[in-house]
Design a protein around this nucleic acid. Structure first.
Ligand SMILES: [Zn+2]
Ligand SMILES: [Zn+2]
Lengths: 303, 303
DNA sequence: GTACAAGTAG
DNA sequence: CTACTTGTAC
């Protein structure tokens, strides 16, 4: 049930509305090259899961994760740097490094890998990847990759990243959430664009996503347990009709849309959800909006 | 409820009936010096818990654990060696060593401790403790301590041990259960006696003990879920009377004992439990005995 | 002492 | 995917 909700696929056109990290979207900027990162969540058979609402990827350790980079105009001497940083302000200055056991020569993922890479949580599969930062000098570890140019017929360049420690690694990240900051740079290190992506590396990506999305909704609807009483009833007439209450301008509009199939109903509910989720994130906390989202969540949960 | 049952204090006279490790008591032998290890479970304020039925100590990492050693006749040039070994046969030959993070210089429990001790899961607080074994040569790590002579008026020597890794330490014991083999030796390494004690080092000793004792009872009473139907009813007349069914000779004897206080009732129930637990362990699986034990467990659980 | 989090086995 | 284990926070 809740699961179904989590399968929501946000249309690409809505993606730009979602901040890199909820509440701190101001850190993102596309800059003169309209720098974008795209996550191909429609691909099935992914071993990872992306939560658009959290702008967060849930992935297993060492699994390859593709990111498509987009920039315009197409100059060919740009680089993208991926730097992991702890998300919580109180830990933001701590270095994100691999844990002690994962940093050992005997660990299988370090075999045939140069030692200076062992400490890096983020690896990029590109042969041109260069690893920067220094644990002793307290400079954040990161990996820099030349973007080159998109293959003919494409307007993006895809890179494969992998995360070499779990968030739970005791002597490493030790449960602290982190995000990857992608910066578009030139050879001189000048930054032209920045995009953030939160990541959770764990054994059960699906479980983690569901948990964190639920927490997010609970936090958003800060009236918590009081909500169920306030919830508007969904009328069930004929096939199925449903109520959408918009709060963009404080007034509420009710949409009654008789849908022709369950699939269409779900599609519409999700669509409505995504639109209002975008609004919520752009305009900040708003009780009416949260009510609508909560309502939709419950409706989707029951389907 | 179950808790109360676990508070059972087995009288000292019953202790010898309990094997060092259920099902493998033959590995224990007292030898010419009648070598014994005694665990002072009556002492309150212990940070650790001992399960007589499992012959197992549940303890937090690095907590001091006292063991009283007893031998006769009283010669004064004997030593006791403590060697941790994995309990499961398929792991028995693997070395029990500390995990990678706990083996680092930066770990606080290694401060001011010679490096050759860092690998040892078992430490002894005695200044005369000597650490043997070798990880590279695959010789089991152990700690050897001269026993000296009991203080005047005592017939035992107390040593304090501590366990420097948790069973759960990923890169160390990694959840595998282990036991400590105590051997009574002379200067030449000749072994005169051997006693085993299972140990679980964890964050919640009480929880661990309850869990493992329950598992043990479930395994013992292999008829499992069928038992509740077969359970004899406890008659409640006057104060409280209870039924004890002995199975030593296959026939069942019912004891109806009217007790004068709840405390006395509990004492009697526990006593009965311990007697039959000893029988069970000496004579092996026996349905009637297990029924009686199960009955008593339930009765104690309700008090 | 309870509830949660997250790796793990089946 | 479910259930269990076990460290951890409150
Ligand atoms: Zn790690
Ligand atoms: Zn350890």
């Amino acid at each position: 049930m809740q699961q179904q909700f989590n399968e929501v696929q946000i249309p690409d056109l809505l993606l730009p509305l979602l901040p890199a990290s909820p509440g701190s979207s101001s850190d993102d900027y596309e800059g003169p090259f309209k720098f974008k990162i795209l996550i191909d969540q429609h691909r099935t058979r992914n071993s990872w899961i992306y939560s658009p609402i959290l702008n967060k990827v849930f992935i297993r350790v060492a699994d390859p994760f593709p990111i498509d980079f987009k920039w315009n105009p197409q100059v060919n001497n740009l680089y993208v740097r991926a730097t992991p940083l702890f998300s919580q302000p109180q830990h933001a200055q701590e270095l994100v490094t691999r844990c002690i056991p994962h940093t050992r020569a005997t660990y299988e993922t370090n075999r045939d890998v140069p030692q200076y890479i062992w400490d890096h949580v983020i690896r990029c599969q590109s042969v041109n990847a260069e690893y920067y930062g220094n644990k002793e000098e307290k400079r954040h570890l990161n990996v820099l990759v030349p973007l080159g140019v998109p293959r003919t017929g494409m307007n993006t360049v895809r890179l494969l990243y992998s995360f070499m420690c779990q968030n739970a690694c005791h002597t490493g990240m030790n449960q602290k959430p982190f995000e990857v900051v992608f910066t578009l740079e030139d050879e001189g290190g000048t930054v032209y664009g920045r995009k953030k992506l939160s990541v959770k590396v764990c054994s059960c990506p699906k479980r983690g996503k569901e948990k964190e999305e639920n927490d997010f909704f609970k936090k958003m609807s800060f009236h918590g347990a009081a909500l169920p009483n306030k919830r508007r009833k969904t009328k069930k007439v004929g096939k199925k009709s449903f109520t959408v209450i918009s709060a963009l301008d404080t007034r509420q509009y009710t949409a009654k849309i008789r849908t022709s199939s369950k699939q269409n109903l779900i599609f519409l509910l999700k669509r409505a959800y995504n639109i209002m989720a975008g609004d919520l994130l752009r305009y900040g906390p708003n009780e009416e909006l949260e009510d609508c989202l909560y309502d939709l969540e419950k409706q989707l949960g029951k389907l």
